[in-house]
Design a protein around this nucleic acid. Structure first.
Lengths: 207, 207
DNA sequence: TAGATTGTTAATCGATTAACAATC
DNA sequence: TAGATTGTTAATCGATTAACAATC
């Protein structure tokens, strides 16, 4: 396997993984053509992506599904569980905490934090909401490796600073703010209104 | 302005818009260098993106903030309001309905729908949850142009089919499913576990 | 004028995809 | 063998960015 995969390939691997999971369990092999159709991409792209994994399909046959699934999981680092801390116990934080898909992919919610004392102690998705004051202790003590920011925008940068100082190197930011993080920390942004605004651009184009 | 903007430019425009909004109100012009630093991109890229808009900055000075904001809004089609229907009143649907940023950018939640009769009639973010049976009537009657799918995966395709048949041409899909839509319908996917899995890839790379 | 900053070119980089030899 | 499908090449496409003339 190549030391680093192209970024576009990395972002398609999860899609392939979900596509494979949706295949009927009677099927044991799968062609790049079928995978491409289900994932909505080009079949040459599927083959190229998979070739980066050192995944060896069989010419004339296709890829063995079970083997391919394992290779993708390994490439993505999904071979063990990751502790996740959700910061912000509002509607979004609660929705995330309740998200069933977490555990299925090896993500364990280690804690749900909030700055609002009124929320601390209440229950969200089986987790007692804890105080953001304990962020550092929780990150260290519970081996948290991923932080999810579901706070208001104005609080996002400070939360990110505290997370990174505590050793978190991967952050998913749902607040509509651009956040600076030190070198070596990976941050991804999921922004609802950006998505909506991209949609409106395309709506406008159609008129 | 060019008839169509490069895709990458379209997805950066919302970021510029938010960056401009965060600038101190005493500032009236802004250089590509400053905008780039705040948005986290290259300044040549900012200038290129803005040149597509026919936006004319002033050499030696920069861009007039108010004018630039209006041009970006116009380019994105944010000059009028859009009706949005949220399908699925679970945690995620509720979080979306409660999302404050909607109205600020001209998105009006026209309805929140659910298939569960137990949820119909309950209140979510000031909206009485309505039955999914009325989807078509609501889309047509309330001029809905954007559909948000916040249902379980297995229901996502059918909801998309019903939305597009009712005339919706822009869909934001939060269900972790690949959905087929007819030509001319724009669909964007926001997938929490894909984002997390991309983060784990980078975590793995650092070890 | 001198300094600053745009708008645009041209080079580069990375991603996509058609095509096909290799081979099961 | 004949048919199917991979793995990879090479062409193409689109996006990024350094550099700088234009010009406020």
């Amino acid at each position: 396997m190549k030391a680093t995969l192209p970024g576009a390939t990395v972002s398609r691997l999860p899609v392939y993984l979900r596509t494979l999971a949706a295949l009927p369990s009677t099927q044991t092999t799968c062609s790049s053509e079928q995978l491409a159709a289900l994932a909505g991409v080009n079949s040459a792209q599927v083959r190229k992506d998979l070739s980066y994994l050192g995944s060896h399909g069989t010419r004339g046959v296709g890829y063995r599904i079970a083997e391919l699934r394992d290779q993708i999981r390994k490439a993505l680092g999904l071979t063990h569980d990751y502790g996740v801390v959700i910061v912000g116990a509002g509607n979004l934080g609660s929705a995330l905490a309740n998200y069933g898909g977490f555990a299925a992919w090896g993500f364990q919610v280690a804690a749900v934090l909030d700055a609002d004392r009124g929320k601390v102690g209440s229950e969200v998705a089986g987790h007692e909401v804890e105080s953001i004051d304990d962020l550092e202790a929780i990150v260290t003590g519970r081996s948290v490796s991923i932080g999810i920011i579901a706070t208001p925008s104005w609080a996002a940068q400070e939360v990110a600073d505290r997370l990174t100082r505590a050793g978190v190197r991967s952050i998913l930011n749902f607040a509509p703010a651009i956040i600076d993080v030190p070198e070596g920390v990976e941050i991804r942004r999921v922004d609802l209104s950006t998505e909506l605004q991209i949609l409106t651009y395309h709506l406008k184009q159609q008129d």
